[in-house]
Computed example of a mutant assay.
Amino acid sequence: MNLKTLVLRYSFFAALATVANIGAQRFVFDVLGDNALIPAILVGTAVGLVLKYILDKRWIFYDLNGGISDHGKKFSAYTAMGIVTTFIFWGMETTFWLIWRTDMMREVGAILGLAIGYVVKFHLDRRFVFTNSMLSVGASR
């Protein structure tokens, strides 16, 4: 896959996961009310994480291995790599909320935090999770 295709595909998947994350957060706020920041962030993060793992595994890193054991190991490592990037996301979202106290600015913070986190996460996943990946930037498949 060439670099342009990789960047476009990864960006699209990141955008999908971001929309799923923010959508799940809005759902939690609708159900639990305006003071549900922590549950909303946790549910949104979980939804975005699972969706992004499924997309990345198959369409970014071309990891076609299956089975519960393989998925369990990879998803655990994928989640562990996401801890650092999740703190970037949560920190930005919470900071924007504390400064401006509006839903719009909280979501701006979330989107910025997710964007930064996804760039960092790609490099961590490539190095530590999908170690047998067929991904070769710049080479044709």
Rank of each mutant, 00 (worst) to 15 (best):
L37I: 05
T94D: 13
H123P: 13
Q25N: 07
D125N: 13
K57L: 10
I111E: 08
I22G: 02
A15H: 14
K57W: 09
T86S: 15
M92A: 12
F29S: 12
G23R: 15
K57C: 04
A40T: 05
V47R: 13
H71Q: 08
S69W: 10
V31E: 00
V28L: 01
F87V: 06
K74N: 00
L55V: 01
R101K: 14
G33K: 00
A110N: 11
V108D: 03
T102H: 12
N21I: 01
I68W: 13
I111G: 08
L42W: 07
V47D: 02
Y53G: 06
W59M: 04
I83M: 15
P39W: 07
D125K: 03
L55M: 04
I60T: 02
G72K: 03
F27C: 03
E93A: 15
A77I: 05
G113Q: 05
N35V: 07
I68E: 11
E93D: 14
R106V: 03
G66R: 00
A36H: 06
T102R: 13
A17T: 06
I22R: 10
V50A: 12
F122W: 09
Y62K: 09
E93T: 08
I41N: 04
I83S: 15
I116S: 07
T102D: 05
V43N: 04
A80P: 00
F87Q: 07
A20F: 11
R106Y: 07
V31T: 00
A40H: 03
A80M: 05
T85V: 06
L32N: 12
G66P: 00
I116Q: 06
H71A: 07
A40D: 02
N35G: 15
I38F: 11
G67N: 15
A24D: 06
L37H: 04
K121A: 12
S69A: 13
F87Y: 06
A80N: 03
W90Q: 04
D70T: 13
A20W: 06
W97L: 10
E107C: 13
S69N: 14
F96Y: 01
V31Q: 00
F96E: 00
R106W: 04
L98K: 15
V108Y: 09
D63E: 08
I38P: 09
L124I: 08
S69T: 12
R26F: 10
Y78E: 01
W97Y: 15
Y118I: 11
L37C: 02
L55N: 06
Y62E: 02
A17L: 06
G44F: 04
K52F: 11
A17G: 10
L32W: 09
N65W: 09
E107Q: 15
Q25H: 08
H71N: 09
P39F: 09
F27A: 02
R126F: 11
M104S: 14
G82C: 10
A36I: 01
T86N: 15
L55F: 09
